[in-house]
Amino acid sequence: MKLRVPSFSILNGKSWKFTHDTLFQIFLGVISIISVIVLAALLLRELIKGSWPALSTFGLEFLFSTAWNPVTGEFGALPFIYGTIVSSMLALLIGVPLSLGIAVYLTEIASSRVRAILSPVVELLAAIPSVIIGLWGIFVLAPFVREHLAPPLMNYLGFLPLFKGPAYGYSVLTAGLVLAIMIIPIISSVSREAILAVPSLQKEGALALGATRFETIISVVLPYAKGAIFGAVMLGLGRAIGETMAVTMVIGNNPQIFTSLLHPGYTMAAVIANEFTEATDDVYLAALIEIGLVLFAISMVVNIIARVITWKYLKLEEGLS
């Protein structure tokens, strides 16, 4: 008797047959590959074409120069790259522990009634328009940072260059706090899914050894879900890097590199949004577009790293019978 194995792979040479299925498969494959490549190529082409005057004038120097003077025609992206990275990292530093705490509380500790109320509330945070969060930042958070948060930081940690005064309300620290609030919904809800997906057999395995609930969460539940949690963090980072409106409203928009988090800074997304309409000469405009190109590249790298690591963990989990 001949064994019939249904094969949907056109690479399977022996059973290669030009059926409707393979035609359909090729058709879909071509469409999806073309659309992705065309879209990426168009975007890159526009960005490179638009930034060409700046690219050809400044070369690689653009990435390492701290000068940003439209009047004299000097442009360097470093303060913006620096501001974007520092404010995003600060957001992760504040937002990730809070998000994980929320996710663990909602999945493992809260009663079902508390969970039913609290989890939609957390997710609703994501629905607030960023300009509203920015306004709140201007009227509430920035004064709070200036009057209540910065003074003790300067008093007790002022010996560190990170917390040197004077304190303006509009600062990298304020931007980091605003970004942290904005990335909490996405990180906590994706992490919550990841924790929910941990098999109860894993938890019971630890509990049956006499582990407390806390020990079980720390040493078994979170490590089991770490691949997906890492993916959640990267999603949050992607959002923080690209966030424009709320950041530009609170960061102070000052294109200089300060070590102190209490000083104003500037980010890539913010400078593009703020100065695009004023950019009258070609090189100025091109410099802004080149910042867009750098932003694009950094976001791509973050996303690719996130994908690769998530795949690695997913493969690992498949090995469990």
Partner: peptide, 21 residues
């Protein structure tokens, strides 16, 4: 109960080693 679970061990239906360790 944590002490009871140490004194009374359990082996489950499906093998459940901790994959991260």
């Amino acid at each position: 109960p944590v002490d009871i679970r140490r004194r009374v061990g359990m082996v489950f239906q499906k093998p459940n080693p901790f994959p991260a360790m």
